[in-house]
Nucleic acid binder design. Sequence first.
DNA 1: ATGGTCGTTTGACGA
Length: 260
Amino acid sequence: MRIATWNVNSLKARLRRVERWLEMFEPDVLCLQETKLADEAFPAMTFEALGYDSFHHGEGRWNGVAILSRVGIEDPLAGFGDGKPADSDARLAWATCGGVRLASCYVPNGRALDHEHYQYKLRWLDRLLNDLDGQCVPSEDIVVCGDFNIAPQDRDVYDPKHFETHTHTSKPERQRIAALADWGLNDVFREHHQDQRLYSWWDYRGGNFHKKMGMRIDLVLTSQSLTKRTELALIDRNERKGPKDDPPSDHAPVFIDLNY
DNA sequence: ATGGTCGTTTGACGA
């Protein structure tokens, strides 16, 4: 079973690439972030033609998350399932696909360490952890994946020093990743790669991709049962390349293969 | 350090 996650930075702008990627990599599940679409505009038919059922939680101009699956979609849930007032942004979609409980997450960026949005980011991550407690137990087959906007360790950043004054590497953010790990969700990519220079996101500006100035902020967190079943974890950095008339997202897809 | 480049509800704003 192949499970992938990809922040596409507008599904409208990236639809052809997503179609191509589905045909080439044939994932069983693809979680998308930053679709930037209203639910009415989500191209469910396009994915259906490729054999995928889908569930989208969008708002329009910003955010938007989806789950595509060719192994069924059950118990879809838009946003947090805690019964509290809904999140202001469409950043979380849950579904069960092929027996795996999945969350497609677009964690708030945070903007700056002294910005209100940074506090929203931390609260959002606390609420995600609480949501896990509410609807899963760690012994189940669980994947929580997406754009976390957090580089878990210094080896996930091209220049840790630069980020000391920025979001994405601060202690409180990393503590949230650690809390998810304590709950039972592992950053499975790191079980398979010790390399210090493997990233999933590169700023569009300044030719950062070609300078290898990136960060690994797109994560696949797996419960213990799935961590054990993972035989491959990859970032498709080729997908970050492309000409001006077929521009890439600033994120590359990340996927794992389970051994059954 | 700054600026650079994308995407969006065309244009200031988020990333």
